[in-house]
Design a protein around this nucleic acid. Structure first.
Lengths: 242, 242
DNA sequence: TTCTTGTGGTTCATTGAGTGAACCAGTGGT
DNA sequence: ACCACTGGTTCACTCAATGAACCACAAGAA
């Protein structure tokens, strides 16, 4: 029910760090709706400020109203304002890029990130969603979140057969050792280490992660990062609602 | 057109710092829609994560998805990340609570704020919208924004006759002296001082403001605040897009 | 120049999605 | 036992959403 709303929301979600602005035809194509429909939806969204028309490029992009909504959400359920100081502290301790992400129904959505100050570092600019199977944060979700939610999430990715078995196996490993590591992302050599953040009731809330160039993954540094992660997780467990 | 969408957006905007959670009946009342309609809209919004169901209190509130949208918007058009450091600097210089707000179609929406560290201070907790006529930020908008937008905004407030004349007069004063001051907000004695932030093309972008207990409004402190404001405005003019 | 192919935007007859009155079932207070 | 609230659900009616077909325009090619 409320198909129009669903369409409109799907349209909103098309906007991302990779495609921050879309034209009418492009939006129509991406959303799989007729141009007339997309036009009507976007114009209505523009009226409210949720979307913005960019005359210079004849495109649409997310509008300032989403910031207002986010501010209200943050005032209702503080998340970023709680997570950010923890990430700052971790960045201080490890010197590396740190981030916190939550499952949003299809991937791990980056909630907040603090970048390393080193010249050779992992950047989070333009990254707003992390895949479930190929990132440390995602693997931590697969290992520690409610099995039903995980099963549902895996089903949606379309992963099946041998790959599905491997993912489950990997989740088991991660669950056993309490953290996940990866040594690459897509085609780049990247070291990633993530731990689960659980609420006071034990429910999975999100993943706290540190990423660095693989050259810095020495045994000593690894232990320092893991220590910082554990500390951060403990803080968040006590400070986050739920 | 797209009436359903308009209804849904109106519903989203009901959530505020003052009413962060609403029940079904309450929402139906506030939105002026039938319970069935509101139920359908809220459930659909919940599916996408834009709204969240709170079982403990049997209410709805804004969901985590709005944070994701805000992150994308912020990556597209940096605003908070630009304004926040400026506010920090101003708070350092003046010792007072500083904030930046933008016109959102009906009021000045607070984009970012940094609170004073003094014991007696003005807090921005639970404040997300500032009225146009009774706050320094609002008066700055009335004085410096595009006259057509201002006229439209004033019309919507329902202000007319003598009060409208007074507002216009006040806007003239503010335009002449380049800043706005107020000595109270609602029934509280509060000192407020605001300056307009204009884009490189001269268009009004928002209001930069400092607020303090009236007892601290000495001539010397006033000059310090005004200086800090001018500095902040200059920075924002060069750093903000548009 | 002219043709093609793209864009953003608009129209309008058709129809199915959205609507709300009326309906549960539950709860807390009197 | 009653009342006045909740949150949630049903279903016949109808009006709002839909998309094919339509502009006007712009950029590129022949």
């Amino acid at each position: 029910m409320a198909l129009v709303l669903q369409r409109a929301i799907a349209l909103l979600r098309i906007f991302s760090a990779e495609t921050p602005e879309i034209g009418l035809s492009e939006g129509s194509r991406l959303a799989g709706e007729s141009k007339a429909t997309v036009y009507r939806l976007l114009t209505t969204l523009c009226e409210s400020g949720l979307v913005e028309w960019v005359p210079a490029r004849k495109t649409y992009r997310l509008g300032p109203a989403v910031l207002e909504l986010a501010r209200v959400r943050e005032a209702t359920v503080p998340l970023v304002s709680v997570v950010e100081p923890v990430l700052e502290e971790m960045q201080e301790q490890t010197g590396e890029t740190c981030h916190f992400s939550r499952f949003n129904g299809s991937a791990m959505a980056v909630v907040a990130s603090v970048e390393s100050r080193r010249v050779n570092r992992i950047t989070m600019v333009g990254v707003d969603a992390l895949p479930l199977c190929t990132t440390a944060a995602g693997q931590v979700f697969l290992a520690f979140a409610d099995p039903r939610i995980v099963a549902d999430a895996l089903a949606r990715t379309g992963i099946a057969g041998r790959d599905l078995e491997l993912a489950r196996q990997r989740a088991g490993q991660v669950r056993d050792q309490g953290y996940a590591t990866v040594d690459h992302f897509e085609d780049e050599q990247i070291f990633g280490l993530a731990c689960p953040v659980l609420g006071r009731n034990g429910r999975f809330l999100g993943a706290l992660a540190v990423t660095a160039p693989p050259s810095r993954n020495t045994e000593q540094h690894f232990r320092a990062i893991l220590g910082s992660l554990h500390e951060g997780c403990a803080t968040l467990t006590t400070c986050l609602p739920d």
